Computed example of a mutant assay.
Amino acid sequence: MDPRSEVLLRQADLFQGPLLIAGAPADGLLAELPQAHAWTWHAGDQALLQGRFAGRCHHGVEAPAVAFDSAVLFLPKSRELAAYLLNALASRLAGGTLYLVGEKRGGIEGAAKQLQAFGKPRKLDSARHCQLWQVTVDNAPEAKPLESLAERFELALADGPLQVVSLPGVFSHGRLDKGSALLLEHLDDLPVGQVLDFGCGAGVLGATVKRRYPQSQVTLLDVDAFAIAASRLTLAANGLEGEVISGDGIDAAPQGLDLILSNPPFHTGVHTHYQAAENLLKKSGQHLRKGGEMRLVANSFLRYQPLIQEALGNCETRAEAMGFRIYRATRG
């Protein structure tokens, strides 16, 4: 069980009433708290939780319309996302209790200061390298619309400026990361047809390809509901159309693709996690049509080339700069 869940269960008597668990991990916590509902924005966690606790799990960027008189937030990595989530929960908890749990190395002590806006927070427990904080919501705020927290910026590309809309918690929020910047410089001679932007984030790559190759049908895929929302906003801001889908990894992608384009993720929260990227590389041949291409950017220290060669039989390095490499491979 997640150590943060273990800390909650040390105080299980506090959580027996109608409870919303925001950012709930995919463990057995709901089995111990029969009146609790889970809210997650991670498609993989949602699938696992729904399989065990059908009807008690909710996926999306807004708090679900279920009744609760207390809520607990599992602290996310992003401070901006934590602020949005705390505001969303506190706005529904006038006179109720809001809890915050997180790892010490994830910044729980600093994040707990955000609770001061709602009342007088106090630390309830410290164990398993985690802390649990509590506040009675004496000052319930107005709920802030998610879109009001969007960061909008413009990319100067060769074929004209691209408008990007980023949301709290999305990778490289409010700016273009170095890896994607390098890949944007190497989008020449791409195949036209069915295109997948894997791990789309705010939708920069998918929107760029759709504008540059308008006859292509572009699908943008991400595990995170906030990335999905941001990608839709980015497409709309540029007058572009594309299919945006939430799913856990390459298994959620369509088949018969002409192109897979990606700056694959390898971090989850404060932890390093390579599974999604490695599954993409290993299973790419199952989703590409014959002659289809995969083009991606990755940190130079990641040993992706052997995985790509094993899956597709070939792999070339198209460019290397700023600690990143551009790989290109085709399905034979």
Rank of each mutant, 00 (worst) to 15 (best):
H267T: 02
D222M: 10
C200N: 08
D188I: 01
P265G: 08
L190S: 02
L187Y: 11
F171G: 11
V195I: 12
L196A: 09
R175T: 12
C200K: 07
H267W: 10
D258Q: 03
L167D: 07
L233Q: 15
V209K: 00
K210E: 12
S172F: 11
A156G: 02
L240T: 07
L233A: 15
D177V: 02
S231F: 06
G203M: 05
A181C: 01
D188L: 09
D189W: 00
T208K: 13
Q194A: 15
V195N: 00
Q217E: 15
Q163S: 15
A253Y: 06
N238R: 07
V165H: 07
T219G: 06
V209P: 01
A237H: 09
D189I: 03
V165M: 06
R175F: 08
A181G: 10
G203N: 09
F198G: 11
P265K: 00
N238W: 13
P161R: 01
G203V: 01
V218Q: 01
E151L: 14
G201S: 03
F198M: 10
F153Q: 03
Q217F: 00
I228Q: 14
R212F: 00
Q217Y: 00
Q215D: 15
F226I: 09
L155K: 12
D251L: 12
K178T: 15
A237D: 14
V195S: 02
A181K: 08
R212N: 10
E241W: 01
Q215Y: 03
E154N: 04
L261R: 02
G239A: 14
G193A: 03
Q217M: 05
P191S: 05
P161T: 14
P214Y: 13
V165G: 06
A156S: 13
L183P: 13
L190N: 00
L220E: 08
G239E: 13
P214S: 08
Q215N: 05
